[in-house]
């Protein structure tokens, strides 16, 4: 195991975050505050409690998931796409590092950033609404599993993308809609029966539901299903990354 290489990649990626610390911390705090102003106060005050939880508190896990998913994908995809774009990937390919070590460095850094971000949003949310965390350990497990899985997904997008436009297209057209339609801001019980059925095909529903359960012990689907779905998605991403490096897809000629 080339620990020095994993550390080098990890620190290189984290240094990028530190260079842009202001945007990295301030922008999610501002956007979270805006969500609470709009959904929590302006609209939320007209919405009744959901399963005994005020609407403002109800949306906190969904808001954190929204940021974790989008930031994990964005961080990891950019992290590997940029060396591809600039050509500096030559150094990575010529170094004595295994694929596992490369992924550990890039995905580890992207997931770390998202987790930190998630915790910042959680703290910010605590300034606006009362929050209780019924199962802190499960909350962390869901947070870490989601961050790692979607960082892996972002890594795949970064390898696949051949332009900045392609880099943006999956997060914009797939990830964000899935998050908004995955019960981040509502319980699926509020939807008509047909849409409830359709929503069950949205993988994000299982993440948000499991995460929300760790806070308030209320869930749209069972926790076991949530864990199963995220594990399946993690498995699919790991297999895809393994295949990418085995075949050299978009990396080696």
């Amino acid at each position: 195991m080339n620990f020095h290489a994993v550390k080098a990649i990890y620190l290189f990626e984290m240094a990028r975050t530190i260079r842009t610390l202001f945007q990295s911390v301030v922008s999610p705090v501002i956007s979270t505050s805006l969500y609470f102003v709009v959904f929590g106060s302006a609209i939320g005050s007209r919405i009744t409690e959901i399963d005994g939880i005020s609407y403002g508190s109800f949306i906190v896990p969904g808001l954190i998931m929204l940021s974790i998913l989008t930031q994990s994908v964005a961080n990891a995809s950019f992290g590997i796409y940029f060396p591809k774009y600039s050509g500096t990937i030559y150094e990575l390919l010529s170094a004595p590092v295994s694929y596992f070590e490369i992924i550990l460095g890039y995905v580890g850094a992207a997931a770390t950033k998202s987790i930190i971000l998630g915790l910042i949003i959680l703290s910010t949310a605590g300034l606006f609404v009362p929050i209780q965390i019924a199962h802190p350990l499960w909350m962390l497990i869901f947070l870490v599993l989601t961050a790692v899985t979607f960082s892996l997904f972002g890594f795949i997008i970064g390898i696949w993308a051949n332009s900045f436009e392609q880099l943006q297209i999956i997060p914009l057209l797939v990830v964000t809609p899935l998050v908004f339609l995955g019960g981040s801001f509502y319980s699926i019980d509020m939807l008509p029966p047909l849409w409830q059925k359709i929503t069950l095909f949205n993988p994000v529903l299982y993440l948000v539901s499991g995460f929300r359960w760790s806070f308030y012990e209320i869930a749209d689907v069972s926790v076991a299903w949530s864990l199963t779905m995220i594990t399946v998605f993690l498995g699919v991403c790991m297999f895809t990354v393994w295949w990418i490096f085995k075949t050299g897809y978009q990396v080696k000629k």
Binding site: H4, A95, V97
Partner: peptide, 10 residues
């Protein structure tokens, strides 16, 4: 420093 680490050197 990054290059040195990448190639497994402390």
């Amino acid at each position: 420093a990054f290059s040195r680490g990448l190639f497994g050197k402390k």
